[in-house]
Design a protein around this nucleic acid. Structure first.
Length: 503
RNA sequence: GGGCCCAUAGCUCAGCUAGGUAGAGCAUCUGGCUUUUAACCAGAGGGUCAGGGGUUCGAAUCCCCUUGGGCCCGCCA
């Protein structure tokens, strides 16, 4: 059974899948796994005909933890303040919204459409109030749970609520010393003394308490999370205990997921530069393939993403699957996988990606590529075609390995050909000289004829031609390829090889 | 110190919570076709299922140990 279906099959009643993130910087492919795993689970619930909803929490009240490498040093003044209170590196938005906006755009492209909830807003609306009150009142009990399960020693003055200093704006430096009637009294490191209303966004719960609180407030029943939360004694373990003992709410069904590694580089991490921003993935990868990449393996396995040759193979694999799907040749699991990988857009008749990576290297204009594709009788919508061409070009420019790229050799570039191969080139040159026009069919016919007059097999003959023109043994179909080049340029190159003087 | 994941063909992986004669795609090789596509069709070679032990009539599959690789926690989220 498909892993998503297997995960949800025993879930009873109303289901709510939750995912989220602190929008503390640009979101990369690795982060995308969380929300896509959530979406796959959500869609698995829908396929299982269960009553399901899907939410995405933007933890915009989390403090800025440090000056990240991508930030100017001036941000040191903002460390400790909620992300929603900090100005963005550019523009007028808040810091959190600045990083959230492109991410939301990306996931929409990926056909992920959760209800987006800002945690700061939940605090502002007082949604956490009752639970904060309860947690403060049962502080000792919670403290014991945390200490027993996580094994860590909590400080004597530990308090289950972090007030935000109304003077300096930091949420990590105010020390509470008293609680009464919904107000937490604190003294901040900046010297200010004040109080926070727990029914407003004047402070927050620490993570290990906030997580179970969210489960109860939002009615979460399933939640995927990274292995960092899932370790023994980690925040899921303590969250589960707090949820069940203190809040009397069953902990959601957990689904841990492994990380995404960049082939040859290791784990993706925003700070090390080993990552591909989520937005950039979509510059070259159709959204279906990104979904497919996450959906095809169970979350417990790490994914080694190879944006170079491996990506093209993945595209092939997926396109093959679509083809088999339309021929009704897939087994049940594969059908589910395909269904879950699909976006709302139709996947019928998509131009072959690998083919496009060749075409974009031959032709510079979309119009020419469109003509070539139409010659084969296929029609694609301009919008889809333009997008795919753009993606293929991006891939060729940024990720294509040498074996997938070609460059036309200089007119006098050295090339090693044996006598038989040279003969093919010279025959071909003669044919070109006497050709009536310059189009793909004629060129192709001329090439076949030239090879026919030699003692080489057709495939050997084509190797000779490719070696002469691009210095490699294989290449794009010769007719269309040469048609896109200037006739005289081709002639000069072939003449050089044959040693024929040009007039 | 603790925890999780992984190891199956040259490469990427499936098969593992129904234990029953090792699979797919790509790559390679052979043959065919000889050109809308670096295409397509047919076939072939290629694996002590990391190693060892156990359970079993029977183990890639379940259990234990070992080795190797990766990651996470022991700050904060």
């Amino acid at each position: 059974m498909y892993w998503g279906l297997s995960l949800v099959k025993d879930q009873k009643g109303k289901q709510r899948v939750s995912t989220g993130i602190s929008p503390s910087g640009p979101i990369h492919l690795g982060n995308l796994r969380e929300i896509l795993t959530g979406d796959i689970i959500y869609k698995s619930l829908v396929l299982s005909e269960k009553d399901a909803s899907f939410i995405y929490l933007c933890d915009d009240i989390d403090p800025l933890r440090k000056v990240y490498p991508f930030l100017p040093e001036s941000y040191s003044a903002h460390v400790g303040k909620p992300l929603r209170d900090i100005p963005a590196p550019a523009g007028d938005l808040a810091y959190s919204e600045y990083f959230l906006a492109p991410f939301l755009k990306s996931i929409e492209t990926l056909d992920v459409k959760p209800e987006v909830i800002r945690t700061g807003q939940l605090y502002a609306e007082g949604k956490f109030g009752e639970i904060i009150d309860l947690m403060i009142k049962r502080k000792e009990e919670i403290q014991n749970i945390l200490q027993n399960i996580s094994g860590r020693e909590l400080e004597k003055r530990w308090f289950p609520y972090n007030p935000k200093c109304s003077k300096c704006g930091r949420i990590n430096s105010a020390i509470p010393y008293e609680y009464s009637d919904g107000f937490v009294y604190y003294k901040c490191a900046c010297g200010y003394e004040g109080k926070s209303d727990i029914y407003k966004d004047q402070g927050k719960l620490p993570w290990r308490l906030e997580w179970p609180a969210k489960w109860k407030i939002l009615g979460v029943t399933i939640e995927p999370f990274g292995k960092d939360h899932g370790t023994q004694g980690g925040s899921y373990d303590t969250g589960k205990a707090i949820s069940e003992i203190i809040l009397n709410y069953p902990a959601p069904l957990p689904q841990m997921f492994e990380r995404i590694l960049l082939k040859g580089k290791g784990a993706m991490h925003s700070s090390t530069g080993v990552n591909i921003p989520a937005t950039e993935i979509l510059d070259f990868a159709p959204p279906e393939i990104v979904r497919y990449m996450m959906a095809r393996v169970p979350p417990s396995r790490h994914i080694e993403f190879d944006p170079e040759a491996g990506f093209l193979n993945l595209m092939d694999e997926f396109e093959r699957m679509i083809r088999l799907g339309s021929e009704n040749k897939l087994d049940e699991d594969q059908r589910v996988l395909l269904r879950i990988s699909a976006t709302e857009k139709s996947m019928d008749d998509l131009p072959d990606y690998r083919h496009l990576t060749t075409l974009v290297q031959i032709y510079s204009k979309d119009e020419q590529i469109k003509n070539v594709l139409q010659r084969s009788g296929k029609r694609y919508s301009d919008e889809i075609l333009a997008l795919r061409i753009k993606q293929a070009r991006f891939w060729v420019d940024h990720y294509a390995p040498e074996s997938s790229k070609f460059m036309v050799s200089g007119e006098t570039a050295p090339v090693s050909l044996n006598e038989l191969e040279k003969k093919v080139i010279c025959n071909f040159l003669e044919n070109i000289d006497s050709m009536e026009g310059w189009n793909a069919d004629l060129i192709h016919e001329a090439a076949r004829e030239a090879i026919g007059r030699s003692s080489l097999t057709p495939s050997e003959g084509f190797v000779a031609l490719y070696k002469a023109i691009i210095g490699k043994e294989r290449g794009p179909r010769i007719g269309f390829f040469l048609e896109s080049m200037e006739r005289n340029k081709v002639k000069r190159r072939l003449s050089f090889i044959c040693g024929v003087q040009n007039e």
